[in-house]
Design a protein around this nucleic acid. Structure first.
Lengths: 203, 203
DNA sequence: GGCTTTCGCTACGAGTCGTAGCGTAATGCC
DNA sequence: GGCATTACGCTACGACTCGTAGCGAAAGCC
């Protein structure tokens, strides 16, 4: 996740077990303590490693939590349910389920807030979390176009903007509903949301 | 903002000037330092007051920043531009302009993240920031219904859910665009967004 | 004028930060 | 097997922030 090079060629390699233990301990601490009271010393203790080991792998709290939260979104999938509406409802419900986890709630928004002043962190979030989900939009849109449910767009630049717009609308609405309004994005809400997204407010 | 009772009846009253200076200093510190590096001692120094004065008025960093950010949203208005589409575009652009300020970006999302573990803080955000904007949705919707642009809803419970849904979709999309995607919610984007919101993806 | 509350200042223990230094353990290369 | 190299655990450290307490002085209401 944080290392690109596969093999540094000599010496004792870093333990993958330790990596997993640290990330799991981070999520556990997020649940129990939340973002602001989470300390790296505490995470190290929970993971059964030395604090120095943690600092050798991650630059700080921000980077660590991004990686810990990013793993939560790895399970997102887009099964073909036969129609665009059903596909959207399915993936939005998955997203809402993950976002309902306390470790996702307190962790994700905190790092997004920090990322407003840290370009590198923003890029890390984009790569680890955002782009992974954006693929779902691209895929679902292509499927719907193949079914004839959505119009084709010739200009690739225009198509990119549409994908970005849809993504911001879907992810934004679910995040806002879950975190700011603090209400569950349950099946009823998702159905209403999907109807507006597909047919507009007037319908 | 933080005091409900108008007059505690005796002794020296709290200086309103000091209140304003502290909130302004908080926003200034948010711009320069961001959320995580902002300290109350620093804010007190910037405002020219003692740290103890600050702690007498606010319970902590969270509450202080909520009040400091809430003031930014006081200027939001909903001028009648003649059509629902124009009304939406106008207010969304205002919202986007405020959200583009660094003090709003780093402050707002940070307190939202903290609010996931703090019911009282969530309520404070709702009262100071969210409800104020939700009125705009209610008003704009009533206007559009009077114009015949939106269908009337007989059931008040259903109408409330619709308002909440619209609010989450509008605010969520702008926030996500600005903070997560880190792209400006400019006029072109707002126009595209309004079109989808009103007529759906198929149009 | 007298009462009450605010305010500035100083000082404090507690906790966290991120790093350095050292000895030991584990691995790859020859 | 031996050796270089790196990871790891542990301890200790100065610097910083936290939130509070205690004091004297100032400012407003009766």
């Amino acid at each position: 996740m944080q290392s690109r090079s596969p093999a540094p060629r000599a010496g004792r390699p870093r333990s993958a077990t330790v990596d997993a233990a640290i990330l799991a301990a981070t999520r556990e601490a997020l649940v129990e303590l939340g973002w602001s009271k989470l300390t790296l010393g505490d995470v190290a203790t929970r993971a059964g490693v030395a604090k120095t080991t943690l600092y050798r792998r991650w630059a700080g709290k921000n980077e660590l939590v991004v990686d810990a939260v990013a793993e939560l979104f790895d399970q997102l999938e887009l099964p073909d349910r036969g129609s665009l509406a059903a596909d959207i409802e399915g993936v939005v419900l998955q997203f809402a389920t993950i976002l309902a986890l306390p470790e996702a709630k307190s962790g994700l928004m905190a790092v997004v807030a920090e990322a407003t002043r840290d370009e590198a962190l923003r890029e890390r979030i984009r790569a680890s979390v955002v782009d992974r989900q954006k693929r779902l939009v691209v895929e679902g849109r292509a499927r719907a176009q193949a079914r004839g449910e959505l119009p084709l767009e010739a200009d690739p630049g225009s198509a990119d903007r549409t994908v970005d717009l849809i993504f911001d609308m879907v992810a934004g609405a679910v995040v806002h509903r879950t975190l700011v309004s603090a209400e569950p994005a349950d099946e009823e809400w998702v159905r209403s949301f999907t109807r507006v997204l597909l047919h507009g407010l007037g319908s």
